[in-house]
């Protein structure tokens, strides 16, 4: 059969005009309004905190970032100690959490049988959904007594590192153990429990998208399973590892209740993570908001703004890193 010759001019695609009904227009506008509401909400959070906190920032100036006492009634207040405390808790949490999350994600994607994989995934999700106050109780009553000997060991053997230094090392006794309680280190380990599932979920998602062909190619060339992981899965998932770690960092920076249960509140500047000193911004807000004096409140809003900006930057960067490492529309048929 021969095809009839087509005229070249008839081959132009016709122009498609979409005429939407009124109901469709209304539907489009409704969703548009909803999306704009979400945008406006995040904007409003920033603007409101800035507006309410402006009095305090204005009167404190740069000393807001360099002062470590918190006495708004006397006009001296700043978040230097709290910023450092927040960072130290978050970094401790990441050091504990990332290896566990990474190996957990690798196990789920590369080792677990298909049926077990779904159960493990939902167990990790469950770990993320356990309320942080429950982790706080767990950390304070169960974990802290077990971690104090670890703190002591670190202080005895690595005391020359400034971070692990303690004021004065007492002999081992129940009384002397008190100096290691309520420390940034213990708070960080508890926060790690909350960071693990978040990191693990992101890493698992990215690892599971590692190209199957390349994995099979590596196997065909005689690689072991670890060889496949090292040469295909990890290089492919690098963005996910970095992004997941940063998302975990964002969560760790903002963690409040578990930290507030464990730390003894104290705004002083310290980098010694093993001593019961130092605190975080979120703890400050939750413990001090009862002071109803408007200027103190403004100072708290300013501290909240600092936390907000910090987590926002970390999360947006993490989101960009993750978005670059995966293609979302891969499931479209």
């Amino acid at each position: 059969m021969t095809a009839a010759p087509l005229e070249a001019t008839a081959d132009r695609p016709r122009k498609i005009v979409v005429r939407r009904t009124a109901a469709d227009q209304a539907y489009r506008w409704t969703t548009r309004v909803a999306a704009c509401t979400v945008l406006a909400l995040l904007g409003a959070i920033g603007v409101y905190l800035l507006r309410r906190g402006w009095d305090a920032i204005d009167s404190a100036g740069w000393s807001f970032l360099t002062e470590d006492r918190w006495q708004p009634a006397r006009g001296t207040f700043g978040v230097k100690g709290l910023l450092v405390g927040t960072t130290l808790v978050a970094v401790t949490a990441l050091i504990v959490a990332v290896p566990i999350a990474l190996t957990g994600a690798l196990f789920i994607t590369e080792f677990a049988p298909r049926r077990v994989r779904r159960t493990l995934t939902s167990l990790v999700d469950l770990m993320a959904a356990v309320p942080s106050i429950v982790y706080g109780l767990f950390g304070f009553f169960l974990l802290q007594p077990q971690l104090i000997p670890v703190s002591r060991w670190l202080a005895e053997h690595f005391g020359f590192v400034p971070v692990f230094k303690v004021h004065k090392l007492e002999g081992s006794s129940r009384y002397a153990d008190g100096q290691f309680a309520s420390s940034l280190f213990i708070a960080g380990v508890v926060v790690a429990c909350m960071v693990i599932p978040i990191c693990c979920a992101v890493m698992r998602e990215v690892f599971s998208q590692a190209p199957q062909g390349e994995k099979e190619g590596a196997l065909a060339l005689g690689a072991t399973r670890w060889g496949v992981i090292r040469s295909v899965v990890l290089p492919f998932g690098r963005g996910g590892i970095i992004g997941g770690t940063m998302l975990g960092l964002g969560r760790a920076l903002g963690e409040t209740i578990a930290v507030a249960i464990i730390l003894s509140f104290n705004t002083g500047f310290t980098i010694r993570v093993l001593e019961g000193n130092g605190s975080t911004i979120s703890t400050l807000i939750i413990l001090k908001f009862g002071e109803s004096d408007p200027f103190s409140l403004s100072a708290l809003m300013a501290a909240g703004l600092a936390l907000f900006v910090m987590t926002l930057i970390v999360n947006v960067v993490a989101g960009l890193v993750i978005a670059r490492s995966r293609n979302g529309a891969a499931t479209e048929i």
């Binding site: 409003a44 903002g254 979120s282 987590t311 926002l312 947006v316």
Partner: peptide, 18 residues
């Protein structure tokens, strides 16, 4: 999408403060 992603890790204490 980016904003929702950022909001998902908004510290809860900041939401309360807002």
């Amino acid at each position: 999408r980016v904003v929702v992603e950022a909001m998902s890790a908004l510290p809860s204490v900041v939401a309360g403060l807002f």
